[in-house]
Nucleic acid binder design. Structure first.
Lengths: 221, 221
DNA sequence: CCTTCATTTACACCTTCTTAACAGGCTCCG
DNA sequence: CGGAGCCTGTTAAGAAGGTGTAAATGAAGG
């Protein structure tokens, strides 16, 4: 069952909201001010928060900001009519939606249905060649699940090769991509970086084979 | 009902996406370029955004950055193959996931489901790395149950590192998250804050290791 | 005014990149 | 057969740039 947290200082309003939410099948907990609200939120981990902006002590905005520092729980703002500027501020601070007091239960339920947010963990774009994996977002490389320490240019170079794994990559293509925007003649240095890479890939990793006069190719299994 | 916003310049692609999304029960709105997309997003407050990276005029990346200035709406990136660098940039700028064109509707639905499902998983109000505990609710840190006094930026910096404990975090990623919305060149100051953190973590806490030319990593035990 | 924190500056140090030199292998041709 | 010429693999050392650290400066708040 999903949990809802009500943060409002008016007892009557809390009672109304609790009724509506329980009808909707929520488990409900309440807090009468911002400080308590944050504690309840941390303790109960609600799936949705109904937050009144006009709170005594810690303001609703402040509560929202602190909440957003560690939680992406959907927050529905309850505000009175002449608080337009504050409502905008609340939305910018991470609120999901708002209803204006007084409101009908139908509207409240409709908005609750709408505000569903997510919390996600980012998936990294990766390039995989056999047992070699390049994580482009984190600039990490692993070989047979063991971390592989690569310098920035080594990583860039291996990335170019891995992108075209199994096919020949011209020296010019490599240089253009790895040393993009630099005018220096890197054709000399390329050889030594290839050399370093081969050592680090050692026996277990995919082989970098040379195509004389043309370029290099990363052998896919 | 949840709303979806499609930002893509190809009419055909929009039609396809609309069909898929409406089958899934979404209310759909469209935008043919980035400028319109931002307006639509501000007006309709969509629950999910499907954003094409290859837009005319305002680039997809630019749209995402501006969107992230005021919204945490889940953004699914649509990109063509061979744009790895751009995809990385997009993820760093706050995108949630991406699909590569051409894609099957099955994959698209799967990724949308992931985003939906993840909205219910909650981020813990505290992050634990070994003996280090960050209490995001109270802005407090403890090391071996002893309180650890951190300045605001130190806390923010350590938070970023701890969230990705064990993995490399790019200097850009750090700066973007810790000094969000500020234009100042913080790349210099980053070093000294890292230094302060290392002193405070001392011997007992997790180590902050440097990956030269890339970024930092908080070593998980 | 004092404290606290963030930023800037400066410099020693270390990693990485580049450059250079040389050895080995291959092809081409005498 | 043998040597010249080219390309590649390997190694080493200096150059360049990134990093760690301490201290000074600047900004914000009580």
């Amino acid at each position: 069952m999903s949990k809802a947290l009500i943060i409002d200082d008016e007892t009557q309003m809390r009672r109304l909201l609790r009724m509506v939410l329980e009808t909707r099948g929520h488990e409900v907990c309440e807090a009468a001010d911002g400080q308590l609200g944050l504690q309840e939120a941390a303790f109960h981990r609600p799936d949705v928060v109904l937050l009144d902006l006009g709170l005594p002590g810690l303001s609703g905005i402040e509560v929202l900001k602190r909440l957003r520092e560690w939680s992406d729980v959907p927050v529905l703002i309850l505000s009175v009519r002449d608080q337009e500027a504050v409502k905008v501020e609340a939305l910018e601070a991470g609120a999901d939606d708002y209803v204006t007091k007084p409101f009908g239960t139908a509207e409240l339920l409709a908005r609750l249905n709408v505000i569903q947010r997510r919390r996600f963990t980012r998936q990294s774009p990766q390039i995989t060649v056999g047992t070699l994996v390049l994580d482009l977002l984190h600039h990490e490389a692993t070989l047979e699940d063991a971390p592989l320490k690569l310098t920035p240019t080594e990583f860039a170079l291996l990335k170019v090769l891995a992108e075209h794994a199994g096919r020949i990559v011209t020296q010019n293509q490599i240089i253009r991509q790895v040393w993009a925007g630099q005018s220096s003649d890197a054709s000399e240095g390329l050889r030594v970086h290839i050399n370093h890479l081969r050592k680090k890939l050692s026996e277990t990793g995919p082989k970098i084979v040379n195509e004389p006069g043309i370029g290099y190719r990363l052998e896919a299994e």
